[in-house]
């Protein structure tokens, strides 16, 4: 089941990229693209694609859309934060590496979480070991793992748990 889902999503993803690249569309190009995308999505390695971790229930899709907006808000905030620190005459930084825990189990969920952390205010994912993520924090507010987890991971994990467990 998860293999069929990975292949179907792989096909849809490839074909969408093709359609966006070839706009404005004509039928011949669209059909040729669909055939090639189908062939690629049937290759043996595509079953191992992390796309299979994505849940497709209506609730998960709604949360995926909400997550995009949460992510954009965090991205803009982090840029304003960078602007503030870079332009501040005293350069207000106090960097350190803290350890946080994640409840996410799937590779896709962890990839998205690590990427989101890197693009949010003052944090960069440095290393992942087991359930632990090591985060470079430009101004360490709280070195305690539990408090750091709540501050850095909590907001995204809530959404990613619904989207891809």
């Amino acid at each position: 089941m998860i293999m069929i889902k990975a292949r179907a999503l792989g096909f849809l993803g490839l074909w969408t990229v093709w359609l966006l690249l070839t706009a404005p569309w004509n039928t011949q190009e669209a059909v040729a693209g669909a055939l090639v995308a189908l062939l690629i999505s049937l290759l043996p390695f595509s079953a191992a694609s992390p796309l299979g971790d994505l849940k497709l229930s209506p609730k998960a899709l709604a949360w995926l859309v909400a997550y995009v907006f949460v992510f954009i808000k965090a991205l803009v905030q982090s840029n304003l934060d960078v602007a503030f620190r870079v332009l501040h005459p005293k350069l207000p930084i106090d960097p350190g590496i803290v350890k946080v825990k994640t409840r996410l189990k799937t590779p896709l969920g962890r990839l998205l979480l690590a990427n989101s952390i890197t693009l949010t205010p003052g944090t960069i994912t440095v290393e992942m070991r087991g359930d632990d993520l090591y985060i470079h924090w430009i101004k360490v507010a709280d070195p305690d793992p539990e408090a750091a987890t709540a501050a850095i991971v909590g907001n995204f994990e809530k959404y990613l748990e619904v989207i891809c467990g």
Binding site: L75, V76, S78, N79, D81, V82, A83, R85, V86, I93, P95, T118, L119, G122, I124, V126, H136, I138
Partner: peptide, 13 residues
């Protein structure tokens, strides 16, 4: 490490 903080976020947006 701190340079990366500025480099990654600002170049993405």
């Amino acid at each position: 490490l701190n340079r990366m903080q500025a480099g990654t976020k600002a170049t993405t947006l």
